[in-house]
Every structure is written in C-alpha cells, then in structure tokens.
Amino acid sequence: MKTSSKEVQDSVKKLFEDGRISHFIGYEAGSDSLRVTPCFLKSGQTVSRLVWNPLCANNLAKYLLDLRKVEGKVGILVKGCDSRSVVELLKENQIERDRVFIVGVPCSGIVDGEKLLAVLGISPGDVVAVEDGGDAFLVTTREGKRRVRKEQVLRGECLVCRYPTPVIYDVLLGEAIPSLPWVRDDYSLVRELEELSAEEKARYWNRELSQCIRCYACRNVCPVCNCPECIFDKKAPRWLSKANDISENLVYHLIRAFHVAGKCVDCGECERACPMGIPLRRLNKKVEKDLLELFGYTAGIDVEQQPPLTKYQVGDLDEFL
C-alpha cells in the first residue's frame, strides 16, 4: 500500500477546493487501533480525518446509495473490490456515473484483525498501528515493531483477490498493482466442499447455518442488496417464515446467494458483518465459480457487460434432455 493517508487527504482537499465534489466518502480511524470506520466529509476542511491503511476493509460503495439525493457530486475512495461494486451499481442504474467522482487506490490486501492478534499472540489494546510493508504487514505494538507475512493474516477475500487495482476511477492514487503474488487457486474453498458427499455437505451447512440468527446484517451491508423492499420483508407473499430454524435459514441464504448471483464481487462484507462467523463467502463463491465456468462471467468488470442470467446463448451447456 504505497499510497499514504496524506496523499488521500491532499487529493480530496484539492477536489473540494476545485469544486469537483460536494461530499466525500472515505475512512477514518476507529474506536481502536485495529479498526477504521467510514467517514463522510462535506468540505475540504476536515480532510485530516481521512486515513488509508491495511485496515480499511469496508466496502464504501453501499454508501453511494444513501447519498443519491444530495446536491453536487459525491467523491468516494475505492479499493479494487469496492470499485467492482460501483460497476454493479452503475449496471443496475442505481447510481449515475456523472454524479460520482471515484478516487481509486490500489490495494495489496486488508488485515484480518483476529488472525493478526492470534498470530502475534496479543490483544487489541496492544496494537498501535498497522502498515503495509510489501509482502508483510508492519505492526507497531506497545512492545515495538513486528513484521508479519501477509499470507498469514490477510482477510479471506484478499487471499484470492484478482483485482487489487480499481477497475473504474476518475483518479488513481499510487501505482496500479497488476496482481497479488499469493493468489493462486481462487476456488479452493469451494472445491473442498464440492468434493464432499451429499450427506457431508448437508451436515456442514446444517452446522454453519444453525448459528444464523437472521439479523440480516449480511444483507444490510451488501452493496448489491439494495432493493427498496426486500422480498424477505414483504408480507405478501411471504417467502420466508419468521421461524428461526435451519430450514428457513437455508431458504434465506440460498435465495440471497441467488439474488446476488452475477453481482457479488466477493468484497467479503457479508462475512465480516456476520456476528456468528458463518462462512457466507463459501456460498457466494460457489455461485461465482459456476457463473465463470458455465458462462465465462465475472461480475464488476465492465459496465457494459450484461448480467449472465438475463441473457443466453443457444449453444449454452445443456445437461437437461
């Protein structure tokens, strides 16, 4: 992460000064030193709040939806994954391209706080700062500086990220990163499960989804879950019973996986938001993998690309006789 917080601040300040944006969505320091939170600026005066570091996990694209009605242009800081969500929002006509100003930052991976603490054997209070150090993170603790190899502590989605550089932007801060050295098999998580027997798969998901408390955090945080009235909230027809049992949890998660099919860019927000630690990415990744294998489709690359389930080719695979 060669780009510094200072560079982000300067660039945003200039955008406000030049009158190119009226609002900006970025990150600021959070409640502890392992956390950053989304930050909304209305003028260049407060840009010093902005930070950019390997803790900036949130996909800010979702907040563009909240700022659709404001006067002027909304600036937003996007990583590779976030930019792909922006592409999906543009595809779905949920935002207008000329009403957003996209500040891209190449990203070489976000820290998974819990993994970091475990690897270092420390508690959150011990961390002072986390910086990007190429193939390692440089962690300043109360005891001094420590170096941790990225592969040990990256977030799951960053381990398989193919788009470290934003795919759409008005300005790019720092140099593009073509690929990340640790990314090899994108779908090992999925394949592992695919190879199990039906019985074992059922057992796995039973175990995982029995924990779901149906708080809908995964849906609420997802940038492409943006329907004005979600079908799960509709009273008639009722697609989902209020009963919180595994069967209904499964219905919820399957339908959700289908609803984000071809739109999910694996930003990992659902999994990060889940208070019960359910491996939701494993579900979304499965659909992602199938769409790629069946129809050669990858979400969030090109605004002009038509969603894969809204079109067809006569020569598509036909396994149904």
């Binding site: 039906a198 798969k201 996986a257 499965k286 199938d290 389930l309 067809y312 695979l317 036909d318 396994e319």
Partner: peptide
Amino acid sequence: EGNYLTRRRAHVLKRLLSYIGIE
C-alpha cells in the same frame, strides 16, 4: 427465448442445491 433463460438459471440452481447437500 424463455427456456434458454430457464436453462441458465437451472444450471446455477442445480449446482447450488447440490452444494448444500440436496441430491
């Protein structure tokens, strides 16, 4: 073209169901 769209969806659904242990 309706059945072509059905076919695409069914491919994905069938795989997803199998993935969670539905034969």
